[in-house]
Nucleic acid binder design. Sequence first.
DNA 1: AAAATACTGAAGTGTATACTTGATAATTCG
DNA 2: CGAATTATCAAGTATACACTTCAGTATTTT
Lengths: 109, 109
Amino acid sequence: MPAIKIDTILHALGDPTRRAMVERLSHGPMSVSKLAEPLNVSLTAVGQHLKVLKKGRLVKTQKSGRVRICMLDASGFMVLKDWIDEQRPALEKKLDRLGELLSEDEPEP
Amino acid sequence: MPAIKIDTILHALGDPTRRAMVERLSHGPMSVSKLAEPLNVSLTAVGQHLKVLKKGRLVKTQKSGRVRICMLDASGFMVLKDWIDEQRPALEKKLDRLGELLSEDEPEP
DNA sequence: AAAATACTGAAGTGTATACTTGATAATTCG
DNA sequence: CGAATTATCAAGTATACACTTCAGTATTTT
């Protein structure tokens, strides 16, 4: 079990189809073809996306018979949450006081 | 101020150069050229990436004189965290428990 | 005022990757 | 058994977008 790289996770979630797959799986496990049903891409494409999601530990699968059952995997999400927290040393604490002062942005010409 | 779409956020974080920019900004605000320094892409490229990150409310900027100061924006990160939590009916409390077990941080009661 | 600095805009290029089709395996059912 | 179902592999296409260069706009410095 190699460590999961945040690069792999965020690359996986960077694609809208894969995001749709994740959101679909958040309602519960299902087969590859069931997963592909509302997505308007080929079954092959879904299989390719699954490979990417599995690499980021966002989805795990298990084959039973001729059917492959897909479900969310907590590990990737956990690493992602930790990464988010690492990006905000200043944000959470200083935001209340300084946020309003610094938040004004110049409109682009 | 329109609502931030998770699509915009995750697309923005899907690129390695933009991720490097975010991680660099997590150490504190800095100018565009300072931000570009260790990245081996042109200043123009950094400007383009900045636009994408701002659209996802991950970064905000303010211009003072001829210098544009860039800093992290909490809003995008918060939306992302919320989205992760929404994917959890399938994961249940596993995320929290794993997080507590594997992190050295202070455990939340 | 001229030069240097810091960025911004327009426009074009090249490549990664999301997608396809067609063939092939593996399992279940009549 | 043969047919239907479920998924996978191999190989090719094409489009989005990350990146470039060059030119232009403000601002600061000398």
